Simulated scan of single mutants.
Amino acid sequence: MNERVELQATLPPEAAGKRLDQVLSEVFADYSRSRIQQWIRAGEVRLDGAVCALPRQRLAGGERVEIAAELPPAGPVEPQAIPLAILYEDAALLVINKPPGLVVHPAAGNPDRTLQNALLHHDPTLAHLPRAGIVHRLDKDTSGLMVVARTLPAHHALVAQLQARSVTREYLALVQGVLAAGGTVEANIGRHPVDRKRMAVRRTGGKPAVTHYRVERRFRAHTLLRVRLETGRTHQIRVHMAHIRHPIVGDPVYGGRMKLPAGAGETAREAIQGFRRQALHAERLVLQHPDTGEPCAWQTPMPEDMQRLIEALEADREAS
């Protein structure tokens, strides 16, 4: 089935004078500018209730935009026998512990061997649901908990909970630098103005994003944080932590230059320099069961590579 897209937003005053396609690609950052342009030309975008068909149309700022469109059908996603770490399963949902390195669904550069392929092998009936029941994502190299719907009513209910921000998602993130206390980052996120493969904090445009964090453990030059998402933007934790100058260890996109504790021993140096992915793990998930309404919670420990990194930093702290 084709995936139906229905989007609404009020454009910021700062959009005045800018092109329609440019602003919409910032506001709806999950969709490329070329996709936005296709929707505009097809008459699937309305400004203040009127259809507009020119991507280059200049904006006044403050307009109400509505998009009702269908994503074109992608090629068939084939079932593939990929091991799944299933923490919970019933008729309505699955809870998966995603390992680092597993892409969630096929995209350019990753046509198969994804979580979606694995889910279709585990339960072929998921082919009748959008993206095989996947309602939220984790980056390829982020590990941890994901919930997957098994029925259309469960899919609708879980999406509604995510939109209402009633799902609790807590992460463990190892960041560079020593933080004195926890805090909140509230900063809009949109596509990077130059590098369209990256996200960035945007003063104008983008989508509202809120990240709460508190200190779990401090090391000599790093901090283990417990992070709670209030919103779920692409790369949100990674972008927000880099924004406050405490990027996640190992992040190849937003991490910057690797920092080592002064006088670190060989074990600690090798552990830090050898960690080639973002040290980010979705540890805890809390939601209402889509059928019963009962609160449900799951928790899963960090994967071995991240645990070894933490142990090396602990040993370095104790040896100093």
Rank of each mutant, 00 (worst) to 15 (best):
N2E: 14
E3S: 12
E6P: 03
E6M: 12
Q8M: 10
A9M: 02
L11I: 06
E14R: 10
G17P: 06
K18N: 12
D21C: 06
V23K: 14
V23Y: 11
S25C: 15
A29E: 15
S34A: 13
I36R: 13
Q37P: 00
W39N: 07
R41A: 13
G43F: 07
G43T: 06
V45S: 06
V45H: 09
R46P: 07
R46G: 10
R46T: 12
G49K: 13
V51F: 12
L54S: 11
P55G: 13
R56K: 11
Q57W: 03
L59S: 07
G62S: 08
R64T: 08
V65P: 02
V65C: 06
E66I: 05
E66P: 00
I67M: 11
I67K: 13
A69Y: 15
A69C: 14
E70G: 14
P76I: 03
E78L: 15
E78S: 13
P79W: 05
Q80E: 15
A81H: 14
A85E: 08
I86P: 06
I86E: 07
E89P: 03
D90Y: 06
D90T: 05
A91K: 04
A91C: 01
V95T: 01
I96V: 13
P99Y: 05
P100R: 15
L102R: 01
V103F: 04
P111Y: 01
R113P: 00
Q116A: 06
A118C: 04
H122Y: 07
H122C: 03
L126F: 01
G133H: 07
H136F: 07
L138M: 15
D141I: 10
L145R: 02
P153W: 03
A160T: 11
L162C: 12
A164Y: 08
R165A: 08
S166V: 11
V167Q: 09
E170C: 02
E170H: 02
Y171W: 06
Q176D: 01
Q176P: 00
G177S: 01
T184L: 08
D195A: 08
R198V: 04
R202S: 13
R202M: 11
R202N: 08
R202Y: 12
R203V: 09
T204L: 00
G205H: 00
G206T: 03
K207W: 00
Y213S: 05
R214N: 04
R214Y: 00
V215Y: 02
H222P: 02
R226N: 14
R226S: 13
L229D: 01
T231V: 03
R233Q: 04
T234L: 11
A242W: 14
R245Q: 14
P247E: 09
I248S: 05
V249R: 11
G250E: 09
G250S: 13
V253F: 09
Y254N: 04
G255C: 06
M258W: 10
A264F: 08
E270N: 15
E270P: 10
Q273P: 08
G274F: 05
G274R: 10
R276V: 10
R276W: 15
R277Q: 14
Q278Y: 09
Q278W: 11
Q278P: 12
R284E: 05
H289G: 05
P290W: 09
P290E: 06
D291R: 15
T292N: 07
G293E: 12
P295C: 03
P295G: 03
C296R: 14
A297P: 02
Q299A: 15
M302E: 07
M302P: 00
P303S: 12
E304R: 13
I310C: 15
I310D: 10
A312I: 04
A319C: 09
A319V: 07
